[in-house]
Amino acid sequence: MGLALSDAAKNTAAYFFSHDVQGMRKMHDQLLESVAIEYDDALYRLALITYVLSKILSKPRYWQENKSAKYWGMVKKRLENCSALAGNGKNTQALRQLVMVHQHVTDAEEHDRRFISGLFSKAAVKAASTFYAKGLSLGRSAELTGIDKREILSYAGTTAMNERLEGGVELAQRMRHLRALFG
């Protein structure tokens, strides 16, 4: 049984309202795991949102700024709407609420490009790299997220995520076979 969108959106709104960074990060991890097992567009979109919101929450000076406050209010409202709609089986409308959340965060970005710029793209690259680290193939991780393989490889390479899955034939044995192949 996968993660239900209504519960996930409700919890996300609650974590955002209570400024619970840890809870938001845990939500993000649960969403990614669920999407890795069975892809769902709304859950994937919510996973990206939870990553961005956790970053926003971890910088109090950002969400405490008055000029952004109205956007954060709208974010919370949309998440609650999403939860209610998904609970009633209205998944298309629920997804639309998440699209609006994305929009509100982007609108807030116009007031502070310095911090939020590119957070959604970063969230997608991190999601793709997490799928790869969990054990999905590079191609599958790229397919699920729309992220170029180069970006996934580069992120996984620099963060040592690759090393979560060790194993395979010994280097010396590979070299013996390769020398034989090339004569």
Partner: peptide
């Protein structure tokens, strides 16, 4: 996992 096949390769 959780009764679902893990789609691993592309």
């Amino acid at each position: 996992s959780r009764g679902r096949p893990l789609e691993l390769l592309h």
